[in-house]
Simulated assay, not measured.
Amino acid sequence: MNYQEFKPQGVLKEFIQCYFICETETDVLTDDNVFASGSLEIMFNLGATRKEFSINGTLVAEPDIQLWGQVLKPMQIKSYGKHAMFGVRFYPHTAVCFFNENIQQFNDAVFNLEDVIGNKIKELHSKLLEADSIIKKITFTEAFLMERLLCFDKKLDKLDLVNSVTYELLLDNNKVNMNRIAASHGISSRYLQTIFLQYSGLTPNLFRKINRFQKSLHLLVNNNDSLTSIAHHCGYFDQSHFIKDFKEFTGSTPSGFHLESSTELIALLK
């Protein structure tokens, strides 16, 4: 499987983590696991046919244009067919700037994006199908995203605040104090919780928990450190807390985890 990421330029680099492609040359059977990443994604199927597709054992119609909300529980995806996907990965708190909907309603689900925002996204999909290079695909996508961003520009008023809070939540999981963060911005802790939930679909505590899990996942994939060492490095109180959180997000203990279960993790090693 060919997986590549491309960085956005200009204004959108503050909102988009990356664009990506995921392709295979032939029909393949994919048995993949998706774990909490803290980010929302849009994916376009640019293949000639739709693949057979199931989520957690339930066969569903695979949308040509998919909105993947925040994944909180481990999600098992099975599909058969030729992959030709182009995607957009947002930062945890920035997808809201492109939608009129409550971002939390997308959690733990895959939506047909055409049902959410209408024919405009279908028009973009048609352009992507005709584009003969990744540069053209990104150019068409960025024009569409800029138009959406201007439609919901009022949400930009609070984005600096949410940016700052997000940064502070990522600094050190052991020393984060929500009351202190709220006070430093002249707002109440309750308002901070509310605004962060509106922008990310997550509570600040859950966001920190996912970030800590992702950090431990990367260490587990890329290092031979002991579980105790990983737990300490990621700010867990002890190894048992690390194992508990890891199992909650993956359905497996760290010692029983199989790298091959996730396309995303395999891509990290390339």
Score class of each variant (00 low, 15 high):
Lys247Ile: 00
Cys18Asn: 08
Tyr236Arg: 02
Thr250Leu: 08
Pro63Cys: 00
Lys73Gly: 02
Leu265Lys: 00
Ala131Gln: 13
Ser261His: 14
Leu40Pro: 03
Thr58Val: 08
Leu46Val: 04
Thr203Tyr: 03
Asn100Cys: 11
Phe257Asn: 02
Asn2Phe: 07
Asp132Gln: 14
Ile42Glu: 07
Ile195Val: 15
Val71Phe: 01
Glu147Gln: 10
Asp32Arg: 02
Ile117Arg: 06
Ala267His: 13
Ser262Gly: 00
Thr194Tyr: 03
Ile134Ala: 04
Phe35Lys: 04
Ala48Tyr: 13
Phe99Glu: 12
Val165Thr: 12
Ala84Ile: 09
Asp27Leu: 04
Val28Asp: 07
Ile134Val: 13
Gly251Asp: 01
Leu67Pro: 03
Ile243Glu: 15
Trp68Asn: 04
Tyr191Cys: 09
Ile195Ser: 06
Glu41Leu: 06
Pro92Lys: 02
Gly69Leu: 03
Glu101Ser: 13
Lys122Arg: 12
Pro254Glu: 03
Lys175Ala: 04
Glu123Ser: 02
Thr253His: 05
Gln66Pro: 11
Gln105Asp: 15
Gln104Arg: 03
Ile266Arg: 00
Val162Lys: 07
Ile230His: 02
Gln17Cys: 14
Tyr80Thr: 05
Ile21Tyr: 00
Gln239Ala: 01
Thr228Arg: 00
Glu130Phe: 14
Gly118Arg: 10
Ser188Val: 06
Phe86Ala: 02
Ile187Gly: 01
Phe242Met: 04
Phe35Tyr: 14
